[in-house]
Simulated assay, not measured.
Amino acid sequence: MPHIRPVSDLRNHFAEISKIVHEAQEPVFLTKNGHGDMVVMSIEQYENMQYNNEIFAKLQEAEIEANNSDIRYSHDEVFKQLRQRLRKEEKR
């Protein structure tokens, strides 16, 4: 269940809101005059969200490219290329 609080709680109950975002690892939605205004979350939550967004964007890009090409690679081919790249990087 989402945590919804008035924006004034950010000032008046900061420690409680901080505890929620860090211990429950959930964002707190702040309202102003009864309408959504802001979301407060921990840095860890934010970084995780950014990471997931980046992965999603890369998967979308890969899907678009796959739809525009008939070239397909097997699992073995992909990992062989990755191993070769890693070896080259290790030599540098």
Score class of each variant (00 low, 15 high):
M1I: 09
M1F: 04
H3C: 06
P6E: 14
V7K: 08
L10E: 02
H13W: 03
F14L: 11
E16D: 15
K19I: 00
K19S: 07
V21N: 00
V21I: 15
H22K: 10
H22N: 15
E23F: 11
P27S: 07
P27K: 08
V28A: 09
V28I: 07
F29V: 12
L30I: 07
L30V: 04
T31R: 06
K32C: 04
K32F: 08
K32M: 10
N33S: 14
N33T: 06
G34T: 10
G34E: 05
G36E: 02
D37K: 13
D37W: 15
M41H: 00
E44M: 01
E44T: 08
E44A: 14
E47C: 01
N48G: 03
Q50N: 03
Y51P: 01
N53I: 03
N53W: 02
E54W: 05
F56G: 01
K58V: 05
L59I: 08
Q60P: 00
E61R: 10
N67E: 15
N68G: 04
N68C: 01
N68A: 09
S69C: 13
S69H: 10
D70L: 10
R72Y: 00
S74T: 15
S74F: 08
H75G: 00
F79T: 05
F79Q: 13
K80F: 13
R85M: 13
R87C: 00
K88H: 13
K88Q: 15
K91Q: 15
R92A: 08
